[in-house]
Structure formats: C-alpha cells, structure tokens
Amino acid sequence: MMKTRTEAIRAAARTLLEEGRVDAVIGYVQGTIPLRAQPFVAYTPEECDRFIWSSFCGGNLASIASGRTDRVAVVAQGCVSRNLNGLVHENRIQRENLYIIGVPCIGMLDQRKVEAKLFGRNIEFLKRDPEEDLGEIVVGGCNAMGECYEEVIKRRDVKRDNCYTCMHRNPVGADTVVVEPVSETAGGDINAVATPWMRFDADRRWEEFAKNFEDCIRCYACRDVCPLCYCTTCFVDESNPQWCGKTQDSADVQTFHILRAFHCAGRCTDCGACESACPQGIKMRRLTSMLEKDVRTLWGHEPGMDSTTKPPLSTYRPDDPEDHFK
C-alpha cells in the first residue's frame, strides 16, 4: 500500500539523519489544538516520528531554514520549495547545505473557514484528513454539557484562497519527492482573480484598499512568517528617517503594507503564509497577487522555478516596457 505523506516524510527524515547527511530536519508536528500544525526542527532520528503532514501546514518552513548555517533538510510543498530556490539564489542558504524533502501538495485548508462552518461549537478533534483534493474532512467536539457532534466538510469548500489558484503544487527542484506527484495546478485561474479591484475607479479602489487593511494591528506576523523578509533591520523599524510611523494611523498602516508587498515583488510564490498567520484575517494577497500578476505580464517571470535566475527587480532587459515614462 502506498505510504501516506506523514509516513513518507518520517521515513525520509529518519534516513537522512541516520545516515548523517543532514544535521537537522525541519518539518511540522501535530499542533496542540486541532486544525493547527507546529513547525519543528528534529535533530535525532527518534524525533522524526513526531513529524506529520496535514491539511493545516499553512506556514512556510523556508523562513525557518533561512539563515541557518548547518545542513538542513526541509519538508517542502510546491510553494515552499520555490521559496527555498529563491533563498539559495539570494545566498540565504547554501545549496550544498540544503536537502529538499518534496511533498506534492493538495492545498491547505483555512482554519477560519472551517471554524465558521461550525460557529459556536468547539472543535476538539480532526477525525479524518484525507489526502485527496476532493476529499472530506471530519471534525467534531463536545460542549461542557457533554453533547457531542461530528461534521463532514468538503475540502474544496474551505481551502485557503491561494490554494485554489496554485500553479505549482509539486515541489520544484526537490532532492527527493516522497509520494506520487499530483496534478500540477489546482485548477483556478490566478490571473482572473489577482486584481479584484481593477474594475473599480480610483476612488473606489482607494476605498477598497483602505477597508482591506483597516483592521491591521501591526503585529508584523505577515512579515515575520514570510521567507522573503529577512532584512536585519526592517524599514518599519528604522527611525531616522522614519519611513513609517509607529501608530495605528491609516497612513502608517497602509505605508507598511504597500512597502512590505513591494519588497516581495518578483519573489513571492503565493504561499499564503501571510494570510494564514494574520490574527485579524487580513487579505495581504490583494497586493501581492496583483504585483505577481504584473511581474508575469511585464517580464514573464515566475519566482523560484530554479535557483539561478535573478529576480526580475534585480535585472533588466534593454527593451523592457516603459508605459509610464514620458
């Protein structure tokens, strides 16, 4: 029988550590509450038995690998493997120190969407988490009075937004791929949904933009979870000149989000970690997906498809489009 992803990851990780080919393996372990997974660094073969793969591995392990100098193996689905390729190019990781354990991915689920379907009921367990795209998960729980329930939810109803339009679900440039590849794309058309505000006029676009980011609490989870954000001092922390104030004024919050997104332009793999991390449920991808669409249209670039191509904003062509220049 074919191994499940969890079994295959454990076996691959264990072998790597046993054979001494890496010093550590970065993967996920079961979270302390249902619908969560926790990044974990295993240093011994025994610790590898804690690894899991679930529908809720919505972070980005490339950010944990980034900047490490020991030899690490990273459990990576399509988007994360592309981030790793990018980080190799940017010299954040040496390729010879990196081993990519590739996992073909069927898309992660948005725990908020699952919770919303069960509003007011506690989720105490995830009973079934199938490895088929069109499968159904089963969640359930009990209340204080001892009344219990179980609910069947279709995966396709509660996927994360970015996972509907994923372009590369299979790992890119992985050293090993632990299970059979899945269909390369998730089926959704990213270009069709990347710029939802484009149909409005400027005033309305501004309104939508302001509304989209009004709940931001400046916790910077979107920045900190992102493998592309590794500056020693982020521009929001610079004080002279102070590019971005520290307050909750809309100008400060908006400046942060514009620059954060722009700094990721041409490098973002649409992994969705920023939206998964946000405690306020803000849709940062409204900006990043627009930028990536432009990057594809203007310069035909797809980030992270190998570790040698320069990101589009670090290079040029003499005949680049220049519609905005007079």
Binding site: F40, V41, I64, C219, A221, D224, P279
Partner: peptide
C-alpha cells in the same frame, strides 16, 4: 525555533 517573533501573542 518555531517562533517567528511577531507580535500576535502580545497584541491579542
């Protein structure tokens, strides 16, 4: 090792 040093826990 897992912590990303964001401010979520403190702000909520």
């Amino acid at each position: 090792e897992a912590c990303i040093n964001c401010g979520t826990c403190t702000f909520v």
